[in-house]
Computed example of a mutant assay.
Amino acid sequence: MAKLKRWARELLILLLLVASVIFVIDWWRAPQAPPSFNQQLLQTLDGESVSLAQLSQDKPLLVYFWASWCGVCRFTTPSVSKLAANGGNVLTVALRSGNDQQVEQWLARKRLKLPVVNDEQGEIASRWQVGVTPTFVVISRGKLVQSTTGWTSEWGMKLRLWWASL
């Protein structure tokens, strides 16, 4: 019994350390919203002009910065696509992944349907100071409320959107 308690305590300490490291890394790599970002109009691949303020007014918006060349994005992008297909409020930004036609072809090959803003030159990501793909940003009522980088699950995305709606 004493051995089991010791193992449980060691496991708890390890989990707290891992959580602390993840929190510090997310804080360090967190993107910074540019001034007046919520008023800027963005053009999606399907030709729609959208603003982050408008999209995030009624419910929190997940903005997903990804790239076709990103290894981790191969695992997270299908989850984002599934979230969008199931009614999640999602807008994605394809970072330096080619021209509009190349991004559309990549999405078609992967059988993914996403609302995509093509950031061919990386200008949007630069204004947001996004240095890591994938980066997830949650915006609620036109304000950046949280962000994370790296792999996250579909449930992690749903939890972040739910938390932002409280």
Rank of each mutant, 00 (worst) to 15 (best):
K110M: 11
T76I: 08
R9G: 06
L91A: 02
D119A: 10
P34H: 01
S36Q: 10
L95Y: 15
G131C: 04
T149S: 14
V21G: 07
Q105Y: 04
P31A: 09
V50W: 03
A84F: 14
V132Q: 07
G150D: 04
G122C: 08
Q32F: 06
L83R: 05
F37P: 10
W27G: 07
I139N: 03
S97T: 06
I124V: 11
S20P: 01
Q43C: 03
Q129M: 05
A84P: 14
Q40F: 08
E48W: 06
V138S: 00
P34A: 01
T76E: 11
T133N: 08
G150P: 06
R74D: 04
Q57G: 09
S126W: 06
K3H: 07
T76K: 10
I124S: 03
N99S: 14
W128C: 00
A164I: 03
S140H: 14
L61D: 04
L45N: 09
W66M: 00
S165D: 12
L11I: 12
W163N: 13
L52W: 05
N38Y: 14
S165Q: 13
V130T: 01
P115A: 12
K113R: 15
A2W: 14
N86C: 07
K113C: 02
Q43H: 10
P34L: 01
V63D: 01
R111K: 14
N86V: 08
